[in-house]
């Protein structure tokens, strides 16, 4: 075991997979010599050289478009989009090409690859360094979408994503890259990460806290706000079951439905805007599959339906007080 932060865990996963499989490579803007603007690929250039730790021209469409060709040919590219906000020039390549290649070729061609993209707010990055665009990709048949919340999961899920036969969009919550929020401050990670081989299967949620009154489903940076909210309301006798989805799609529907059947109450927390956000799908799934168990309207605690603001980001994101409020309202309904 070793104490790592998410960046170090991502780096560890990439290095191990590149050592294991010569077809794995990383590519993107500043990922080579410099090691990435968040340092996720640091050291890979020295160990694997410029042909496997590739500095590309500044072109997200080009990174993804050529990575699709590479993956179709037989390599396993891990393409970095420097910020998830910059993924949209590649949106057509991801949605119309990458996601549909297996299907449209009758299973003859596939492009198994990973797109890594730091996402989410909390770094004072304004509209274009803060967005959470996961819903667009969850909506697209043929993609898997993953978002870890901790170093151990980041490592285990990234290794599984690289080995997966399908394309994976792997969002990394940058706010908790180097630590987690404890009582309003980001403190260094104290979580042990298994050294060497460590995989976390795609499609399995993690039960972070057991409880019998309310089920709270969340992912990414909001896991930490949610765990804190659950700790606070526990003092009032409200026992919240916290589920970290980890893989957003295909979602672990059994974990969700099983928990809601036990608690009868459901709250979803995510940073992305509310309308047509992933919470809408999760609430629908729970309503369809556990309707007669529900004792309160499911609640969504999400980013507002505005562009992501810079100065007021802590009022935009669903921080602990709003989650606490939603938990109380849902429990008392």
């Amino acid at each position: 075991m070793a104490v790592m932060n998410i960046i170090q865990a991502v780096n560890d996963a990439l290095r191990l997979e590149m050592r294991r499989d010569p077809s794995v490579l990383v590519m993107g803007e500043d990922v080579g010599k410099f090691g990435g603007v968040f340092r996720a690929t640091v050291g890979l250039y020295d160990e694997f050289g410029p042909d496997r730790s590739i500095d590309t021209p500044l072109s997200e469409g080009g990174i993804i478009g050529t990575a699709i060709g590479m993956a179709t040919y037989g390599l396993r590219p891990v393409a970095e989009i420097q910020f998830a906000d910059y993924i949209f020039p590649a949106f057509d390549q991801i949605v119309n090409e990458l996601a549909k290649l297996r299907y449209r070729s009758g299973g003859q061609y596939t492009a198994p690859m990973v797109i890594r993209a730091p996402c989410g707010g909390g770094i004072r990055g304004g509209h274009y360094h803060s967005q959470s665009p996961e819903a667009y990709f969850i909506h697209t048949a043929g993609l898997k979408v993953v978002m870890p919340s901790s170093p151990a999961d980041a490592k285990g899920l990234l290794i599984s994503s690289i080995r997966d036969p399908d394309p994976v969009v792997f969002f990394e919550p940058k706010r908790v890259y180097r630590g987690r929020p404890v009582e309003g401050r980001i403190t260094p990670w104290d979580q042990d990460v298994p050294e060497g081989e460590h995989t976390v299967p795609l499609g399995e949620a993690a039960l972070l806290r057991e409880g019998r009154h309310v089920t709270l489903a969340t992912y990414g940076a909001m896991v930490h706000e949610s765990v804190e909210a659950a700790r606070l309301v526990a003092k009032e006798g409200l026992e919240v079951e916290v589920i970290d989805l980890r893989t957003l799609w295909p979602v672990d529907v059994e974990a969700l439905v099983g928990s809601v059947k036990k608690t009868g109450r459901f709250v979803v927390v995510h940073e992305a805007p509310r309308t047509c956000g992933f919470a809408a799908e999760l609430v629908t799934l729970v309503s369809e599959k556990a309707f007669l168990h529900l004792e309160a309207p499911p609640a969504r605690v999400t980013g507002w339906d505005t562009p992501f603001p810079c100065t007021l980001e802590n009022d935009y994101m669903p921080m602990t007080p709003r989650i606490v409020d939603a938990l109380r309202r849902t429990a008392r309904f």
Partner: peptide, 8 residues
């Protein structure tokens, strides 16, 4: 771009 990526 796919043709280029495959060649690469």
């Amino acid at each position: 771009p796919h043709a280029v990526g495959a060649a690469w």
